[in-house]
């Protein structure tokens, strides 16, 4: 109530001078509850502020890393394809192409913990327990030869870890180091003796081709339609549009690794057009795990039942699959996503 009165007083004052200026607070918003702050205020500062209690060792970290991180970052944190390398690169920062990793570049350990905790794994962020985060961070440190294989990282010894490039940074000094760029009156006439072309972009030829506009400038309505009922085979007309819509929503969990629909390409996982009912491990141009190849040889077919079992608990269903996904807990999510996949052919 008091806030309301303040606002009222302020508006009256404002009206008097005919300016919408408020001398005091507006009384908008409501106090944040401690539970709400605890849920959102997760960042960790270099001095350890915000770090929860817990611990994790290198050995456990290796297992957790293999489960959740290795699909993109490699078993040894060496990076797969274009995904970030997390280890190596020591002493390369002054080289022509420096390799910037946690070990060679990152100045604060808090940043690693904070990033893994809040932003990873890609596509399933904020799903790790504090002890798992400690273990992953311990393993990344081990991969960079910063700790040995017996090491356990905890909130208690966190600040003892020395990051190799901690002293490698200076605060922006452009105002002094580049003071000569403030020349005010630059040269206008006869500024150079001669001008020669020293390098041409066409020689490198890395500019993307301009794809035909039909692919690029789609209107959103058409795009939506193509992902739903119209895209698939005739069979799709029998599919429940509500299930497709639900499945499309569930598929967001899969999207960081899989594409489906017109123009779908292989990403970390294979493109999934026509996957339901297809032979396992048979999509052209994708490198499957040994486990998937073995299952394919035994004649595994992605029937509704097999697909449902796989999606419920991928790692339990197929030991050794590269798909690092915990699984879909709800049966109706599983059913819906299968229907959604069927809408792209089966």
């Amino acid at each position: 109530m008091s806030k309301y009165r303040k606002l009222l007083a302020a508006s009256v004052l404002g009206a008097c001078v005919a300016v919408p200026a408020y001398a005091d607070k507006f009384g908008l918003g409501r106090p944040a509850l401690p539970e709400e702050i605890a849920a959102w205020d997760l960042d960790v500062a270099p001095d350890g502020t915000g770090l929860p209690e817990g611990s994790g060792d290198v050995f456990t970290g290796e297992e957790v890393f293999a489960e959740y991180c290795a699909i993109c970052h490699g078993d040894f944190a060496e990076g797969v394809d274009n995904w970030p390398k997390l280890a190596g690169g020591e002493g390369t920062l002054a080289d022509k192409d420096p390799l910037k990793t946690v070990g060679s570049y990152w100045p604060y350990l808090s940043t690693v913990w904070d990033y893994v905790n809040r932003s990873m794994p890609f596509g399933n962020a904020q799903s790790l327990e504090p002890d798992e985060v400690y273990a992953i961070v311990a393993y990344i440190l081990y991969s960079n030869d910063i700790v040995d294989d017996e090491f356990t990282l905890s909130h208690e010894n966190f600040l003892d870890v020395e990051m190799p490039n901690a002293e490698g940074f200076i605060v922006d000094d452009r105002n002094t180091a580049e003071a000569h760029f403030w020349t005010s009156e630059p040269c206008m006439v006869d500024c150079k003796e001669s001008v020669e072309i020293t390098m041409r972009a066409a020689v490198l030829d890395v500019t993307p081709e301009e794809v035909e506009a039909e692919d690029a400038g789609q209107n959103p309505a058409a795009e939506q339609a193509s992902t739903a009922v119209e895209a698939g085979t005739e069979e799709t007309t029998a599919l429940d549009p509500e299930m497709i819509e639900h499945g499309k929503n569930v598929f967001k969990k899969c999207k960081s690794c899989h594409q489906v629909g017109e123009g779908a390409k292989h990403r970390t996982g294979p493109a999934l057009n026509g996957i339901v009912g297809a032979d396992a491990g048979a999509i052209e141009g994708f490198k499957y795990s040994k486990a998937m190849k073995a299952a394919a040889e035994k004649g595994l077919v992605w029937t509704d039942e097999e697909m449902a079992a796989f999606l419920a608990r991928p790692k339990a269903y197929m030991k050794g699959t590269r798909m690092s996904f915990a699984g879909l807990k709800k049966q109706d999510d599983i059913d819906a996503v299968i229907v959604y996949l069927k809408s792209f052919g089966s």
């Binding site: 920062l93 490698g168 605060v171 922006d172 452009r174």
Partner: peptide, 16 residues
């Protein structure tokens, strides 16, 4: 830290 910092020729990096 790991991104949006600018590594100079000698390997030190500007931040902020």
């Amino acid at each position: 830290t790991s991104k949006y910092t600018d590594t100079l020729e000698d390997g030190t990096s500007r931040k902020w």
